[in-house]
């Protein structure tokens, strides 16, 4: 059985590192793994998505609409955008941070209100957290990705030690301690 995870956010928020960290953990667990990323133009502050799939044998690197077991969203509007990709019985992990897209900055559109409530109204399971504040508490606003991974880790059958060793092999040495702290703050969130 293949598990499909989507990591979505705004270009520059660190979605690539999150997908690689998750991929590394799953490879260490002995799964077949595929990760799909998009580089280039869309990374420049646009809506970005990476797919992580693992199981006995993974064919397509893509996750399609209605196929994701977990969507991990770094930003509210992005959670809403990619919601149709989540299975109706899937789980959404969302950072409550909101970043205005250019049409809102230009004044031609309004940032939608009550996104989290509207998503909850669909009946899907949602964990909404202010991961930015937790990241800042851990020492860097950039650690949002690892905080969210920590929250998601509770929903996957992987031990704390396995996550820690993946952080050690994925993150540059000088950031390891900060990232471990950020991970644990997410992991131990009640």
């Amino acid at each position: 059985m293949t598990k499909n995870i989507m990591i979505v956010g705004v270009g520059g928020q660190g979605t690539l590192l999150a997908s690689r960290l998750l991929g590394t953990v799953m490879v260490n667990k002995g799964y077949d793994v595929k990760i799909s990323e998009v580089h280039g133009m869309s990374q420049r502050g646009g809506s970005v998505v990476t797919y992580v799939k693992f199981g006995d044998k993974v064919d397509s690197p893509l996750v399609d609409k209605g196929e994701a077991d977990i969507v991990m969203a770094f930003e509210q509007l992005e959670a809403a955008r990619w919601l149709p990709y989540l299975k109706p019985n899937g789980h959404l992990i969302v950072n409550t941070q909101s970043i205005d897209p250019m049409p809102v900055i230009n004044g031609v559109a309004e940032y939608p209100q009550g996104i989290i409530d509207s998503i909850k109204a669909t009946g899907v399971s949602v964990t909404a957290t202010d991961a930015l504040s937790i990241a800042v508490e851990s020492g860097s606003a950039k650690a949002v990705n690892v905080v969210l991974i920590g929250i998601m880790a509770k929903h996957l059958d992987i031990t704390e030690e396995e996550w820690m060793s993946a952080i050690e092999s994925t993150v540059p040495v000088k950031f390891i301690e900060m990232n471990k702290k950020a991970f644990l703050l997410g992991y131990n969130l009640k």
Binding site: Q43, G66, A80, L83, P112
Partner: peptide, 18 residues
């Protein structure tokens, strides 16, 4: 496939100069 649907107005997020 039946997909999850919300009533949120999804504003596009095109790439921008950083």
């Amino acid at each position: 496939t039946d997909l999850l649907k919300s009533d949120i107005n999804i504003v596009p997020r095109p790439p921008v100069l950083c």
